[in-house]
Amino acid sequence: MNIFRLFGDLSHLAAIAILLLKIWKTRSCAGVSGKTQLLFAVCFITRYIDLFLHFVSLYNTEKVMKLIYISASVFTCYLIFFKFKATYDGNHDSMRAEFLIVPAAGLACLINTKFDAIEILWTFSIYLEAVAILPQLFLISKTGEAETITSHYLFAQGSYRALYILNWIYRYHYESHVDTIAIVAGVVQTILYCDFFYLYITKVVKGQKIVLPA
């Protein structure tokens, strides 16, 4: 474990917590893409499938973190699609999730480390995570704005994988550890946040709200 990966995981946890708090406190999921949250839940379930296959006692923080990610993302989807369904902005959350899932699944079958069920599921979850934020960014571009709390969520979510890139550089240099698929997908994922990062740093940090030219 290194500092970049630690802060990456903490940033990821923070993102999940910020979103849950936003929805729970405001009792509304306006401005939140339900599809992105569904895609994240699929990512966690397919990536941590080993938890279900051979359940081992929660002997380390990693298992606990995996369970937290899965349960928090499923609970977030429950809040969006059931409890606060009336506030879900379905009209603007209109990016076709199939256009993300099918290519990720296809690519996972073509480019993977080993043609093995668990490995392909892991690869699929990595590819899907790289593009899972697109419905959320699409929704913001459609509505033309993002609540400040949603911007903080996106910043934390984007920072998590950016910090993981630093972690991969660190591990390559000190442990000569390379996981090419995760690295390439992680770089693509972080690039997708670039324009949002620019808006966040130039606006939200100064207390302004993100309003996109509609």
């Binding site: 995981d9 990821h12 973190m65 080993k114 490995e119």
Partner: peptide, 10 residues
């Protein structure tokens, strides 16, 4: 068979 890479990250 070659070992399946252990993806030891979350």
């Amino acid at each position: 068979p070659e070992p399946i890479p252990d993806h030891d990250e979350l």
